[in-house]
Amino acid sequence: MSAVAWIATGSLAAWLWLLLGQGFFWRTDVRLPPRRDPAHWPPVCVVVPARDEADVLPLSLPSLLAQDYPGRAEVFLVDDGSSDGTGELARALAERHGGLPLTVCSPGEPPPGWTGKLWAVRRGIGLARAREPEYLLLTDADIAHEPDSLRQLVAAADAGNFDLVSLMARLRVESGWERLVVPAFVYFFAQLYPFRRIGRKGSRTAAAAGGCVLLRTDAAERARIPDAIRQAVIDDVALARAVRRSGGRIWLGLAERVDSVRPYPRLGDLWRMVSRSAYAQLRHNPLLLIGTVGGLALVYLAPPVTLFAGLAAGSAVTAAAGGLAWLVMTATYLPMLRYYRQPLWLAPLLPGTAFLYLLMTVDSAVQHYRGRGAAWKGRTYARPDTAAAEPAPEQR
């Protein structure tokens, strides 16, 4: 067998393992677990960190204020140094729409060793604790909730005795680039963190989706959230790991009634969204970067390349292995396209989308070494080094 045939065979073997041995990551039926209304609806505080979110806040904040939660609930929006009037707009929206009580506050600039979002979350949780909530809902400013969202989250956490219940919000898919890139983003995330494994007792896989995280207050205290993860750029995964390390039970699934309203109409918007944290996902390790690029090439790029190379060279083995690998890849992507209500003809294009993600990952590393890594809304976060060992402000 030629080298190309071996590559095609290796790619096919990888896809057969992914199909059967990676927690059935490709299935999209992991939704909120069975739930029942609790005998007593516990108090909940909703914490919303927001920085320059005036464009999306009119679509998201009213949905939180309109929650039909039977128990006591209120919303804390933490204005993280916005320059577009986010805080003032939030107050105006609350006056216009009514609903749950809203408190708007500002934490000031984050000290060294903190990301802005987690510093804002810390301030929001600090204010919320004075209300003695049993649960905290951490949700982003671009996330819209159906009126029964909070009720369903709390019921699921109570029925399953979960310390953390998180939903991967359905991202916006309207522009051509969003259709090509966004479903693949969730597909790749599920491949890294199979949802079925996350909710399993004794599992070591831990992840959450930062846009919608319901967290028991006592679990947050045990895990020292957010202080224990104050430098995390990928804060949702870090939060889930901290909760699991402290003995908490976690669950993650796909949302049906929670949606992101943030648009990513151009490729550049999606590129920045992915590249700002891709190298952080690899722990800023160049060896992991090389391995990831090689893995993406073998798993996603090799199938179509070896198929056409085999056809051109008249190698039935190479063409068959490459074609079968591409077929399995396409089949595993179909459920995600159905979930996003997208045309199924996009499935065979997944290798092209994977190539874009490969370039985004490499660009993330390049920007990191240029000192512009993890840039978001005017802030740039360097690699966590000595600052990670610094004590939190109240511990100094």
Rank of each mutant, 00 (worst) to 15 (best):
L307M: 09
P286S: 04
F185G: 04
V258R: 01
V293P: 01
L64N: 00
S275A: 15
L93H: 01
D227V: 05
L344A: 15
P49A: 11
I198G: 00
Q67F: 05
R51Y: 07
Y381I: 08
W6I: 12
E146A: 15
L136M: 05
A206G: 08
L32Y: 03
A184Q: 08
L167D: 02
R230Q: 09
E109M: 09
A155K: 05
Q152K: 14
D55R: 15
A316P: 00
A313Q: 12
C105S: 15
D37A: 15
S106D: 07
D79M: 06
V48L: 02
D84I: 03
D55E: 15
M273C: 09
V173E: 07
T205R: 09
I7H: 06
R276P: 10
R383K: 12
L18W: 09
K377G: 04
P335Q: 11
K377S: 10
Y300I: 04
W17N: 10
A387Y: 12
G253T: 05
L349V: 12
C105P: 00
G116I: 04
L356C: 14
A321P: 12
L57G: 02
W41H: 03
L288V: 07
L350D: 05
L311F: 05
W15G: 04
V233R: 06
A320K: 08
T103Y: 00
A156W: 02
L350Q: 04
H97V: 13
L270I: 15
L270E: 02
P304Q: 06
L12R: 00
M336K: 03
G253A: 09
A365H: 00
D52Q: 12
L89S: 01
A220V: 05
P335I: 10
A240V: 09
G87D: 01
V186T: 14
Y339A: 08
D80P: 03
R122T: 08
F188G: 04
I143G: 03
L19R: 10
V121R: 06
R224V: 08
D140M: 02
